[in-house]
Computed example of a mutant assay.
Amino acid sequence: MTTRVFVDLHILQTVPPANLNRDDQGNPKEAVYGGVRRSRVSSQAWKRAARMRFADRVPAQNLGTRTRRVAGELAKRLQARTSLDQEQSARIATALLAPVGISAGKKAGATAYLLFVGNGQLDAAIDLVAHRADELAGYDDDALEEAMKGLPVAEQFRENHPLDVALFGRMVADIPALNVDAAVQVAHALSTHAAEAEFDYFTAVDDTNEDDTGAGMIGSIGFNSATLYRYATIGLDQLRHNLGETDAVLEAVDVFIDSFARSMPTGYGNAFAHRTLPSLVAAVVREDQPVNLVSAFEKPISAPKGGIAERSALALAAEHRRSVALWGDKPAHTAIAHAFDTDTDSELAESFGTSVTVAELRHGLREHLHGYLTR
């Protein structure tokens, strides 16, 4: 029997007045859930924020780049490693990429879509031609095209995936062989309570204006504040398929949990200074399927006593217990780190275990997952 293992992450985070993720009107994104309007932050916004934090823990060589200018990135690397000038490097790089079959964009040197490729994969592609770059630079277009046909360029993009490509996947619609199935799914963050949009009317003063008493400019920014429920799940088996090595898989899980929990979308960051840390992080290892516990908040939380974050934590714990009791799918491992008081702690402990630090949560999870990966 093949065991399918998933790591569910449940996070509660209170954010002050902010505009983390704006819609096409410039206002904070929203959604109706449970019959009321909620604050919402898109999964794409939080995935990018997490990916930007990877750079604090992972060498650039083991990370990816999302770009339309793949040929340009190849040309930079070729020029840095050879005596060729920019024009010669660009010509060879374009020819090197041609056999892969990536559709060209409208602008010269650009692809038709963003391509998520690893920095190490780009370097591996350059390894195929760097040793004979001077020779290739002397070829005419037909000879250069012929010289590239037998090179395993596409193979370089199908192997040795960087951490972020292995986690978030890659889709290339017209070249299915380059697709990488994502090992991580991220839900849209949703407020646990009803949230109304507000607007900050502001003026700016012209410091050099001595004649006019009016404002130099006026404007408004939409914002809201919310306690957000954030959820993500990691498919351990898919991640192992994408990365291969046990140590690489364990490190990827740890990096993602740390980065996802600590990251924050930067929208209007200078105007609101909205960065906070979660008040609760729970990890649940399941052997059946991922389970999003957002139904804990289908009835919006109110806060007559104890605050919305604390009542949200109690609702999350109760929903987890109800789910386990109803379906009988007892998790293989649970762990929680939170900042709530003694009364709430006992309720949370009944559902997720004794509270530990986030570092201890990650360490315990790593040890538990190591057992699956080394069977």
Rank of each mutant, 00 (worst) to 15 (best):
R4N: 03
D8M: 00
L12M: 09
T14S: 14
P17Y: 10
D24I: 00
R53I: 02
F54V: 13
R57P: 08
R57N: 05
P59H: 08
G72P: 10
L74T: 02
L74K: 01
Q86L: 12
A93L: 08
L97T: 06
V100S: 05
G101E: 07
L114F: 09
Q121N: 09
L122C: 06
A125F: 14
G138T: 14
Y139P: 06
A147L: 07
M148L: 15
A154D: 05
Q156N: 09
Q156E: 11
R158G: 15
F168V: 15
L178S: 14
N179W: 05
A189R: 15
A197W: 02
M217L: 13
M217I: 05
S220G: 04
S225M: 13
A232Q: 05
E245N: 04
D254H: 12
V255M: 14
D258N: 08
R262L: 12
A271L: 15
A271Q: 09
D288A: 01
P304D: 10
K305Y: 03
G306K: 13
E310I: 09
A313H: 01
L314W: 08
A317S: 05
R321L: 03
D329K: 09
F340S: 09
F352I: 07
S355D: 14
A359F: 02
A359L: 10
E360D: 10
H363K: 14
H368M: 00
H370C: 06
